[in-house]
Structures are given as structure tokens and as C-alpha cells.
């Protein structure tokens, strides 16, 4: 295990070489671990913010993109298809860097003239429009799996387009897409670590810094455990939501 040499190096550094193993554990290892946990917890808010705000913006945006993708107006449809293919076909890391430096490259605005929170803004915009592309495709598949008879039944009952979508189609679509959305959310939890490319202070950025400082992988292990636990929570919550939609099947 990688942790044991880490443990030994910590112990030797503090000159407690002669102490029993549990003395070392209690006096050196646990306080050190606690320090790292506290440090990374400080970055958790950054990670959580990216996660929450990206979901908040990309899901409604994804629905909008899906409608554009299905539009009867051909130029809009072509443009949207192109946008989706670019978002899915290039690395998110690259997109984030491009967004961040866009004011300079495209408008010749010096980066130090940008507002203070530009870094965070660029991150959220980048994450949101990237994830919106994926969500749009997920929603599109969820929509196309709904039988045409549902539209026809609603049409004959004179529901109208809006009511048909809100009351008949959307609830069924939500059920259809839940498993894929869960997947996407789990990927997003891990993707938040890409914010380190712009040196935004979130958990992974801190873990990398601290790991370099300590010359030890321990902060990275701890970060890994954080991501894993966060995704356990996501999976648990989404399983509950899926269960809520279990009361019917088609």
C-alpha cells in the first residue's frame, strides 16, 4: 500500500522512531490525516459550488438545446448539432482554458482588466455549456423513446402543444432519462477536478498542492476518498429518485 511508506516518512520526520506503533499512529499519523482532511474540506465548497451550479444551469439549458436540436428551422438545427458535436468532441479541459482566455484572445481585453470573479464565471459557463450538450442528447433520446400514440392521444383530447409536453411527455421523459442523468452527475463530480487547470481553489487543486508540498500521495488518497463518498451520496439519492418513478412502467 502506498500509505505505509507515507506513514513511515511522517514518523521518521518527527523523531518518534522509538515509539510503539500506536503511539506513532495517535501522535503523528492521525493529526496529520486530520490536518489534510480539514484542508481539503476547505476546498469542498469550491467543488460543491461547481457541481451544484453546473447542474442548475446545464439541465434547463440542455432542455433548450434539445428543442433547438429538434427544431423545424433547419439552420438552428444544424447550428445546434454542430455545437453539440464540438462540445462532445473536444476535451472539457481545453474548453475551460479557451473560455477563460477568450476575452483576451477574441477581444484583446487584458486578463488583469477582467472582473475578479471571472475565473469562477468562466468555469461555470464552461462546465454548464459543456454539460448542456450532453444533457441535450440524453433528453433527446428520452423524448424519442416516448410512443407517438401519447402525442396523438393528447392531441385528440385537445391538450395543445404546451400542455402535452408539460403533463404527458415531460414526466415520462424524466423517468426515461434518470439512469443516464445519474451517470452524468457522477462524471460531473469527478470532472470538477478539472478546475485545477485554471488554478481555481477546489478540493483537487488543494490536494495536488499539498501532495507536492509533503512529497506524499496521502492528500490525493484523501481526495479520492472524498470523491468516492460524494458519488456514493449521488448514487444513493438518485436511486431513491428512481424508486419514486417506479410506480408505473410502460
Amino acid at each position: 500500500m502506498g500509505l505505509y511508506p507515507v506513514f513511515l516518512s511522517l514518523v521518521s520526520a518527527t523523531g518518534l522512531a522509538g515509539a510503539t506503533w500506536w503511539e506513532k499512529l495517535v501522535t503523528v499519523f492521525l493529526p496529520e490525516l486530520w490536518r489534510i482532511v480539514k484542508l481539503l474540506l476547505g476546498g469542498l465548497s469550491g467543488t460543491g459550488m461547481i457541481f451544484a451550479l453546473t447542474l442548475l444551469f446545464s439541465i434547463p439549458l440542455g432542455i433548450l438545446v434539445m428543442f433547438c436540436r429538434r427544431s423545424r428551422f433547419a439552420p438552428l438545427r444544424v447550428l445546434t448539432t454542430f455545437y453539440i458535436s464540438v462540445m462532445r468532441g473536444t476535451p472539457l479541459m481545453l474548453q475551460l482554458v479557451v473560455f477563460y482566455y477568450a476575452p483576451y484572445y477574441f477581444f484583446k481585453i487584458m486578463m488583469n482588466k477582467m472582473p475578479e470573479n471571472w475565473l469562477f464565471l468562466a468555469l461555470i459557463v464552461g462546465f454548464s455549456i459543456n454539460y448542456a450538450a450532453y444533457f441535450a442528447e440524453i433528453f433527446r433520446s428520452g423524448l424519442s423513446s416516448i410512443a407517438v400514440g401519447q402525442y396523438e392521444a393528447a392531441n385528440v383530447l385537445d391538450f395543445g402543444r404546451m400542455r402535452t409536453f408539460l403533463h404527458i411527455i415531460l414526466p415520462q421523459m424524466v423517468k426515461n432519462v434518470l439512469p443516464s442523468v445519474t451517470n452524468e452527475m457522477i462524471t460531473l463530480v469527478k470532472d470538477t477536478s478539472l478546475a485545477f487547470t485554471l488554478s481555481y481553489v477546489e478540493m483537487f487543486t488543494l490536494a495536488r498542492q499539498e501532495s507536492a508540498l509533503m512529497v506524499s500521495p496521502m492528500p490525493l488518497f484523501v481526495a479520492g476518498i472524498f470523491y468516492y463518498v460524494a458519488n456514493l451520496v449521488v448514487a444513493f439519492v438518485m436511486a431513491r429518485v428512481e424508486k419514486k418513478f417506479d410506480y408505473y412502467h410502460v
Partner: peptide, 10 residues
Amino acid sequence: VFQNFNLFPH
């Protein structure tokens, strides 16, 4: 009344 009923499953 449709051949496949087309009831709203939800």
C-alpha cells in the same frame, strides 16, 4: 379510441 389504447402510463 385507439388500437393500442394509448393510455397515459404515468
